[in-house]
């Protein structure tokens, strides 16, 4: 795939939803259900962003991915800042790959 084309297209589909409402005022009054879905969509996307790719990306060492994901989840559940969760997850995943290759 042409990477530059992908970048251009993604830029367009990111900027249009941001810029258009400043020009087209009717977008302001979308039905309530649509607005509700738009706000919930990023939460709903998280599950399929994580599974199954976080496991399959490590192919046979899938458990390393699972440990990393669970660690980051628990760390942020207990109110650690995001960057700390990511570092903990990276360290544990590296350890898993070193200890159980």
């Amino acid at each position: 795939m042409n990477v530059y084309l992908m970048i251009a297209v993604c830029s367009a589909v990111t900027l249009v939803p941001r810029i258009l409402p400043l020009f087209v005022r009717t977008l302001d009054s979308l039905p309530k259900t649509i607005r509700k879905c738009m706000l919930l969509l990023p939460i709903a996307a998280l599950g399929c962003l994580i599974f199954p790719l976080s496991l399959t990306d490590f192919s046979s060492s899938w458990y390393a991915g699972l440990v990393g994901v669970v660690a980051a989840f628990l760390s942020s559940y207990f109110r650690r800042p995001m960057i700390i969760s990511i570092i903990i997850s990276l360290v544990l995943t590296t350890l898993m790959l070193v200890l159980f290759p």
Partner: peptide, 16 residues
């Protein structure tokens, strides 16, 4: 292992 960073980011958003 750094592949995990992106999933860790999503997982930490999810934790919150």
């Amino acid at each position: 292992a750094s592949v995990i960073t992106v999933y860790a980011m999503f997982a930490s958003l999810l934790g919150g």
